[in-house]
Design a protein around this nucleic acid. Structure first.
Length: 106
DNA sequence: AACGTGACTCGTT
DNA sequence: AAACGAGCCACGT
């Protein structure tokens, strides 16, 4: 069992996977987890993102749920900010609040 | 230590 | 289509 310089922590793996998501695209928690080499840990990803430091510069707003909706409670400040950030990158929402598949990374 | 909870997801009813 | 159950897992109480 190790935790040394050559064995990235789960957080580091998530960092790397997330930083590879381009502007104007979105990805589901579960898919991001798979890309980070952490299959089945969508829930952990969500929780970890919620604790990420502000200044990290990571595109946390490009992560949505498998229904292609923003997972933060609707009406919450976080939900509004995520929506705003996505809109400013050109990601469009349907009137029902879902994001079109064409923006989704699979 | 049990129990509920949450930025989750999937297969089955 | 909607609700359920089961996996998932760290945290607070």
């Amino acid at each position: 069992m190790q935790r040394d310089a050559t064995t990235p922590s789960d957080e580091e793996k998530l960092y790397l996977a997330l930083s590879g998501i381009p502007a104007g695209r979105v990805i589901a928690y579960g898919e991001l987890a798979r890309r980070a080499g952490l299959p089945g840990r969508a829930r952990w990803v969500g929780r970890t993102l919620s604790q990420f430091p502000e200044g990290a510069g990571l595109p946390w707003h490009r992560v949505i749920n498998a229904n292609r909706r923003i997972s933060l409670p609707s009406g919450s400040p976080g939900h509004l900010e995520q929506r705003q950030r996505l809109l400013s990158e050109g990601v469009q929402f349907s009137s029902a609040g879902t994001i079109d598949r064409k923006y989704l990374l699979t």
